[in-house]
């Protein structure tokens, strides 16, 4: 395959130069500009991290400390919150990993196939079908909750997990297809054309060119889709039986203190459980981000 025909992109240039970027000035001015850029980014980034700080300091407080001051670092630490939280979530966590992982991967596979067809293939009814899929974004999910639940119950599936995974995959399709179609349409046509001339089938083009070239977008979509699936609780609380309970469902039980009472939660332990349940996400991110970087710099684009 010959992909050398298209121009160098920003990412290659960075890789090639490594040195000074397209600066705003020269010499010392550049360094100054670089420093000020970093200062601004650091400031904004740290501000964005404030909720994490908030969660961390409050995860170490008992209820009266929490109620007294939300923002300070407690003098007397209560790390036992983590033990309490872990006791609540260690079983459901594994389950959440399975359900979220399966849902997101399946979402991406299906959405990639569809987005490829919408972006790069020509077939009668393409625009109508795409408009129909797009229209799903416009219907708030709490309004379709009841008919959706009836549909889930009407389809006997071999596993209770699938009862949740399949509707979750369906719910993510519209957004993912929309984003991926935009990304695939922006791919350089000459590379695809070259592949076609080389005799690559549509599936080969998809797996060998489109997917590797779109790795950053695919990873972004995966990360963004991961979060709501990981945090979803209303549908899982209705669909999953006790043995298949996911993290947020366990957390809701935990927050309530009782079966569904209006009791105030033990916020300290709740914050601790938020942090614990963020750990798998962080691990996954670091893994995905490495792939993201590799996708950027591996030169896969050159075919």
């Amino acid at each position: 395959m010959s992909g050398q025909t298209f121009g160098r992109t920003g990412r290659e240039r960075h890789q090639a130069e490594r040195g000074p970027g397209p600066g705003l000035g020269g010499g010392a001015g550049r360094t100054l500009a670089e420093l000020s850029r970093q200062a601004v980014l650091l400031l904004l980034g740290l501000l964005g991290l404030f909720p994490l700080y908030f969660t961390l300091v409050n995860s170490l407080k008992n209820p009266t400390q929490y109620a007294a001051n939300l923002l300070n670092v407690p003098l007397e630490l209560h790390p036992e919150n983590f033990a309490v939280a872990w006791g609540q979530i260690n079983g459901p966590m594994l389950h959440s990993v399975i359900i979220t992982g399966a849902s997101v991967i399946l979402t991406l596979v299906l959405a990639t196939l569809s987005a490829y067809a919408f972006a790069l293939m020509d077939f009668p009814g393409r625009h109508v079908l795409f408009a129909l899929i797009f229209a799903l974004l416009l219907i708030p999910d709490f309004l379709t909750l009841i008919p959706l639940y009836l549909q889930i119950k009407a389809l006997p599936l071999p596993s209770n997990d699938l009862d949740l995974i399949l509707p979750t995959v369906a719910a993510g399709q519209a957004f993912c297809i929309l984003v991926l179609r935009t990304a695939f349409e922006a791919l350089p046509r000459d590379v695809l054309e070259a592949a076609r001339i080389d005799g690559a089938s549509a599936l080969q083009t998809l797996t060998r060119i489109v997917v590797p070239m779109s790795a950053p977008v695919l990873v972004s979509v995966a990360i963004i889709r991961l979060i709501p699936v990981w945090n979803d609780y209303l549908l899982p609380s209705l669909v999953l039986d006790e043995a298949h309970r996911t993290l947020p469902v366990a957390l809701v039980a935990f927050q309530g203190g009782g079966a569904s009472s209006s009791a105030a939660p033990n916020y300290g332990a709740l914050m601790a459980s938020y942090l614990l349940s963020a750990v798998p996400l962080l691990l996954l991110f670091s893994f995905l981000m490495r792939y993201y970087i590799q996708g950027l710099s591996s030169g896969a684009v050159k075919g």
């Binding site: 299906l110 959405a111 293939m121 009668p124 009836l150 995959v169 369906a170 549509a202």
Partner: peptide, 23 residues
């Protein structure tokens, strides 16, 4: 080509028909 495209879109359409369009 269209035939293949339909095949690519089919799993999504089936899933959506059941879990999204009908509701």
């Amino acid at each position: 080509r269209g035939g293949l495209a339909y095949l690519f879109v089919l799993p999504t359409v089936l899933l959506l028909a059941w879990y999204a369009y009908y509701p």
